[in-house]
C-alpha cells in the first residue's frame, strides 16, 4: 500500500496531466449540438454580457454598411409590395384568410454579438433569448440569406450553429427546376459550401440560384442560400459535386432575423407518426 502512495507521489505530475487530458477529451467527445451543457457556451450570463458590451462598441464602425444593407432590403421589399397592390391595401383580408390565428411564420430581429468563420465548427451568439421568444431549432437568416440555426437559449442570449459547420446539413433545391439535395460545408473556405445528391440528368449551369427547399420545418421555402460556382461529376458516384458560392458574407453579417414556424409542432407530430408507422412494418 505504501509503495502505491510512493508511486502516486513520484508521478503525481504525470497522473494529473493524464487526468486533465482525459477530462478535456471527454468534454470534446461528449459535446453534442443538441445536448450541450448550458453553462459551457457563450450564451451564459458572463460571456454573453461581455460579448454584448463589446459588440455595442464595435457596431458603430459598421453602421455605414448596415445602413446600406437596410436601404437595399427596404428597396427590395417595396418592390415586392408594388407587385401585389391588392394585398397591401387590404391587410384585413389577409388576416381573415388565416382564421386559426395568424401566419405560419413570424420573425424576431436580433444582432449577432459573436461569430466566427475560421474554425472547423463555427457558432453564432445572438443578443436575444428566451424572454424575446427565441427557442431552440429556430432558423436564423439575414437580409441576404440563411445564416444558421438556434441550438441553445438562455434568458437573454442564444447561441446557434452557423451554416459554416460540418455538423449541420440543410435541405436545399435549385430554384429553376425544384430538384433538391442537401447543402453542407466542408470546413475549407467560408465563402463556399457544397450541394450534394443532385443526380447527373439534372441540367445545371454556373450561376443557378440555390434556395431552401422548405422540407424541414426550420426554414420557409425559397430563402436564398447561394449560387452555383462550379460543378463536376464525382468519381464513382451518381451525383454531381456542386460548389455553391454562399450569398451571406459570414465575415460581415451583423443583423439577423430569427424565424418561428407556428406550425412546427403539428408538422413534426405528423412526420413522427409516419416514422413510427414505418418502424412497425
Amino acid at each position: 500500500m505504501s509503495s502505491l502512495f510512493r508511486f502516486l507521489l513520484r508521478h503525481h505530475v504525470f497522473i494529473l496531466f493524464i487526468l486533465l487530458e482525459v477530462l478535456s477529451l471527454v468534454l470534446v467527445f461528449n459535446y453534442n449540438n443538441y445536448q450541450r451543457s448550458v453553462y459551457l457556451n457563450s450564451s451564459n450570463r458572463i460571456t454573453g454580457n461581455i460579448y454584448n458590451a463589446y459588440s455595442k462598441v464595435t457596431n458603430y464602425f459598421s453602421l455605414p454598411r448596415v445602413n446600406q444593407e437596410l436601404a437595399a432590403e427596404n428597396a427590395r421589399l417595396k418592390g415586392l409590395l408594388a407587385q401585389q397592390p391588392g394585398t397591401v391595401q387590404l391587410p384585413e383580408n389577409m388576416i381573415q384568410r388565416q382564421p386559426d390565428g395568424g401566419y405560419s411564420f413570424s420573425f424576431v430581429s436580433a444582432r449577432l454579438i459573436s461569430n466566427s468563420v475560421n474554425r472547423q465548427h463555427n457558432f453564432i451568439t445572438l443578443n436575444k433569448g428566451r424572454k424575446d421568444g427565441i427557442k431552440p431549432d429556430q432558423g436564423v437568416i439575414s437580409a441576404s440569406g440563411v445564416v444558421g440555426v438556434i441550438t441553445n437559449v438562455s434568458e437573454s442570449f442564444s447561441t446557434g450553429i452557423s451554416l459554416l459547420n460540418p455538423r449541420w446539413n440543410i435541405s436545399a433545391k435549385l430554384k429553376k427546376n425544384d430538384y433538391f439535395g442537401s447543402l453542407s460545408w466542408d470546413g475549407r473556405d467560408y465563402r463556399f459550401a457544397q450541394l450534394n445528391e443532385i443526380p447527373f440528368h439534372v441540367p445545371l449551369a454556373k450561376g443557378d440560384t440555390i434556395v431552401t427547399s422548405g422540407f424541414s420545418s426550420i426554414f420557409p421555402e425559397g430563402i436564398m442560400l447561394g449560387t452555383i460556382e462550379s460543378f463536376e461529376k464525382g468519381g464513382g458516384d451518381n451525383f454531381f459535386v456542386v460548389q455553391v458560392r454562399l450569398s451571406v458574407d459570414f465575415k460581415s453579417v451583423t443583423y439577423v432575423e430569427v424565424i418561428e414556424n407556428h406550425h412546427r409542432d403539428e408538422i413534426e407530430q405528423l412526420q413522427k407518426m409516419i416514422n413510427d408507422g414505418n418502424n412497425l412494418d
Binding site: 470534446v28 451564459n44 465548427h121
Partner: peptide
C-alpha cells in the same frame, strides 16, 4: 473554450 464554444479543445 467557454468563450469560443469549443468545450475541451483549448483545455486539452
Amino acid at each position: 473554450d467557454v468563450f469560443s464554444n469549443t468545450p475541451g479543445i483549448h483545455a486539452a
